[in-house]
């Protein structure tokens, strides 16, 4: 007997990867403001690294975390301190800092052994506040609330200075994160995670050590968030506690939910969708929306995100990825498709 993977068509993956690396050149050709678009894509790339990890935790394992901005913060500050104050090369920090954040995740995993659902969300949210306070308290290293300047990323003597350089660095790691998280999700670990979410009894009866795997989920998720933090700190060159507020954690959860929980591609799509909406669509459309709703100023962003979240949970709980799967079936069956099955 042979496995079933051979049926899958995987040729699009290398094409996509080549496309990702060619994208900046295309953008440069298309528009003079390509640098801004690259900056937005870099932001999305960093967030993708974090949200695929968050998806493993909240989507797969069902442990809601509202503290992922704090993980990002720990990763950023750890790397900034290690590289600029301790003097460790950036390349090593790329490995060490995520591990440290993973350990923090491990510690936060302890309460998750006893509490779940909204209560866990609140606990992790509290963790977010504590981290922010601690960063302010450790003034000698973090310069308090004033923010910290961070050096450029240097890999083997090459300094990544512009958004153009950063794009290649970040997208390489984003691809790596997606591949690794997908492999985790499809292996025995991913199956155990999903079993914990849907039926702890079935998981235990199948030999899954609940405590171990819940901690593992936090650990892995912490590693991804830590990696995102390292890249965030060094590519944005300045970090301060104002970056990492509770709203950011909520945005991460929205990204995962909008994309479709418990699918890695969903997290990627959701992140891209929200980031592009946030940085490109909303600033363009803001004036128009304000005129349409006849309001002055106001927080259009939050309004829009709340609305999107609401609509997705009610009408499209499987998220963007689910939408895509349905669309694909629709096109496959094209002339014979049953009506009203689109989207």
């Amino acid at each position: 007997m042979k496995g079933r993977y051979e049926d899958e068509n995987l040729t699009w993956i290398p094409i996509l990867i080549v496309g990702i690396f060619l994208l900046p050149f295309v953008l440069k050709g298309l528009t003079y403001s390509y640098k801004y678009y690259l900056f937005v894509l870099n932001m999305a790339g960093i967030y993708i690294i974090l949200t695929v990890g968050l998806d493993l935790l909240s989507g797969y394992t069902g442990l809601i975390s509202l503290g992922h901005a704090a993980f990002l913060a720990i990763g950023s500050y750890t790397s900034a301190i290690l590289v600029d104050q301790v003097g460790i090369p950036f390349v090593f920090s790329l490995f060490i800092s995520p591990l440290i954040v993973g350990l923090f995740g491990f510690i936060i995993g302890f309460p998750a052994l006893r509490i779940t659902g909204m209560y866990l969300g609140l606990t992790t949210m509290g963790f977010g506040f504590i981290v922010k306070r601690l960063i302010i308290a450790f003034r000698e290293w973090t310069q308090g609330a004033g923010g910290l300047e961070v050096s450029f990323p240097i890999i083997f003597g090459y300094t990544f200075k512009s958004d153009w350089d950063n794009y290649f660095l970040i997208s390489a790691f984003a691809i790596l994160a997606v591949v690794v998280s997908r492999r985790i999700g499809k292996s025995k670990i991913g199956r155990a995670f999903m079993a914990i979410r849907d039926s702890e009894q079935a998981a235990e009866a199948s030999g899954v050590n609940l405590a171990k795997y819940k901690m593992l989920a936090f650990f892995i998720s912490g590693i991804f968030a830590g990696l995102a933090g390292v890249l965030f700190a060094h590519t944005s060159h300045f970090i301060s506690t104002d970056h990492f507020d509770i709203l950011l954690s909520i945005y991460f959860i929205i990204m995962v939910l909008v994309g479709g929980a418990s699918s890695i591609y969903g997290a990627v799509l959701g992140t891209l969708f929200i980031v592009l909406l946030d940085y490109l669509f909303v600033p363009e459309m803001k004036g128009w929306i304000q005129e349409f709703l006849n309001i002055e100023g106001g927080d259009i962003q939050s309004l829009l995100f709340g609305l999107i979240m609401f609509l997705f949970i009610i009408f499209q709980p499987t998220g963007l990825y689910g939408m895509w799967l349905k669309m694909r079936i629709y096109w496959k069956l094209f002339p014979f498709n049953p009506k009203k099955k689109f989207i």
Binding site: S33, Y36, M43, D242, H243, Y279, P283, Q301
Partner: peptide
Amino acid sequence: EDHQYNPQKAVAAAKKLIEK
């Protein structure tokens, strides 16, 4: 442009103004 007192949004807004 709006930055909501968020440094990251400020960077995005400044880049938008400068580049776009």
